[in-house]
Simulated scan of single mutants.
Amino acid sequence: MLSPQSLTEMLSAIGRGDDARDLAETEAHGLFADMLDGRIPALELGAVLASLRWKHESADELAGFARALNERVPTLELPPHLPRMVVIPSYARAGRAPNLMPLLALMLARLDVPVLVHGLSGGNARPGSLDVLERLGHLPCSTVTEALNTLHAGRCAILPTEVLNPSLDSLIRLRERMGHRNTAHVVAKLLDPAPLHSLRVICVADAQLLSRLHDMFLRTPERALLMRAPDDDSFADPLRRPRIELFERGGARMLFEAESGALPLTNPLPPGEDIDGTADCIRDMLEGHRAIPQPLLNQLAACLFGSGAARDLTHAKATVSLGLAHTAH
């Protein structure tokens, strides 16, 4: 727990504009722990969030924030014979492209990979992935036990942030009062309910944040896929594949290089804000009536390999080609 003097000193350090100092990982851990535990007064909390937004979080700060969060998230344990749980965050609002993250999640579940999607549900949350999943017949779980049962049944589990950590949910929802995103939006992407037994899918739009996350993952043992996504949600650009990297044990491996130019689509995708049209589009893709964009298939292969469901990337690509044909219905 930070003392009032320590908090004041931190605020002074991070709130100096161009002269701001980055916090050490241990400092960041203590600060975010107090934020989640409700020990930061409202005035100071707003100042911290605003200062971090304009300073930008360093790799050490992100690591400390993530550690504090994941110490306060319930652990989901699955049988050891299963692949790693693929953890997919979804916190972006409707963007330019239709939200195809539900397609990725449901394809993985069809290929017998445990999948957990987490994001905001209810309240003033803008339409997004969870709304598309609901239209496809996949409702959020109300408890961790229900999510585990869903995973054991081989289905994609959807958990609202409020169930995983109510304090994180509250911090994210401050966007409506503050008028912009805050650090909680970034840290939510790093949520890990299965430490060392998961594959987190991390997609961000900002190139500088991508670089800082790259540096952070080089210092951690956890496994994660990292890529740039135009709308900040957890799916590859359907028109142009991003660079996809796999991180584990402090190392990085490039699985797919970024493509240049845009790929032609035989069937135009629905507008990003069209939730019903997006759900219909995904349903057609899952049933084999519409082609799945190649970047999404590449991301699926990366997830299969990263989760351990495939022995190598070649095997993952073959599983994607054969498995989807057999599971379409």
Rank of each mutant, 00 (worst) to 15 (best):
P4V: 03
T8V: 15
M10Q: 03
L11R: 09
R16L: 11
D18T: 14
G30I: 10
L31A: 06
M35C: 15
G38E: 01
G38C: 09
P41Q: 14
L43R: 15
G46Y: 00
G46S: 03
L49G: 06
L49D: 07
W54C: 09
E57K: 05
S58I: 02
A59C: 08
A59H: 10
A59I: 04
N70K: 07
N70C: 06
V73K: 13
L78T: 01
P83C: 01
R84L: 13
I88W: 02
S90N: 07
A92C: 12
G95F: 03
R96V: 13
P98Q: 02
P102L: 01
L106V: 06
M107H: 11
A109F: 05
L111P: 00
D112C: 12
V113I: 12
L116V: 02
V117L: 01
H118R: 08
G119S: 06
N124G: 13
P127H: 01
E134S: 10
A147W: 00
A147S: 00
N149H: 15
C156A: 00
S167V: 08
S170M: 14
R175F: 13
H180N: 07
H180W: 12
N182S: 12
T183Y: 04
A184S: 11
A188H: 03
K189T: 13
L196S: 13
I202M: 06
D206G: 04
H214W: 11
T220V: 07
E222Y: 13
R223H: 00
L225Y: 05
D231C: 06
D232P: 04
D233T: 06
S234G: 11
A236S: 10
R241A: 12
P242W: 00
I244M: 02
E245Q: 13
E248K: 09
E248I: 03
A262D: 12
L265F: 13
L269Y: 00
I275H: 03
G277W: 06
I282F: 00
D284Q: 15
R290H: 10
R290P: 10
A291C: 12
P293R: 04
N298I: 05
A301V: 04
A302E: 01
L304W: 08
F305H: 07
F305T: 02
S307Q: 00
D312P: 09
A316T: 09
A316H: 08
V320M: 05
G323S: 06
